[in-house]
Design a binder for these strands. Structure first.
Length: 157
DNA sequence: GCCAACGTTGGC
DNA sequence: GCCAACGTTGGC
């Protein structure tokens, strides 16, 4: 089992949206490394931190879990969608996504600023200068530290 | 709104 | 295959 962090702008899709929907396809990823994590490395049941980017404050807002393996991202076929991919064919999709399910909303958002102050998290990809990757692996230990700060269970069950 | 960091594209 | 131009991310 691997642990992950996935970013979303709450204005587009927030932890409250996921709490309402219970499950969602994590569509719109158009970065090869992030895609490859979803298609090659994620397993159903993997715990995922839900991170609010471009938010005030940016930070970890909750927990979710991978609930379904990779499928073709439907948004690549939608010419009205920002993620439209004219090179993709139904028979040869370029982009894939996983389905995630809601686990918990944090008792509070743990702000990025606070995470930067936690020594145990110093090596997190998220905290690297210039880090933009919207899907990242997270150390199990780092996941546990953040879960404690946010007030949700450290492992999905 | 600014801009640093970084990924992608496309000419050569 | 190089790399300049361009686009995007995301904190501030």
């Amino acid at each position: 089992m691997r642990y992950w962090l996935m970013k979303s702008e709450p204005e587009a899709y927030s932890i409250d949206d996921l709490s309402r929907d219970k499950r969602t396809l994590w569509t719109g990823i158009r970065n090869y490394q992030a895609r490859n994590y979803m298609t090659q490395d994620m397993q159903v049941g993997d715990p995922v931190l839900f991170y609010h980017s471009n938010a005030d404050p940016p930070g970890v807002a909750g927990a979710m879990r991978v609930s379904k393996g990779p499928v073709a991202d439907p948004s690549q076929f939608d010419s009205k969608h920002a993620g439209y991919e004219p090179r993709a064919e139904r028979s040869a999709p370029m982009w894939h996504c996983v389905e995630v399910e809601f686990v918990a909303k944090g008792k509070r958002v743990v702000p990025l600023d606070e995470l930067r102050g936690v020594t145990a998290l110093a090596k997190m990809e998220l905290l690297r200068k210039g880090s933009r990757l919207s899907i990242q692996p997270v150390d199990p230990a780092a996941y546990a530290v953040i879960a404690k700060l946010a007030g949700f269970p450290k492992a999905a069950s």
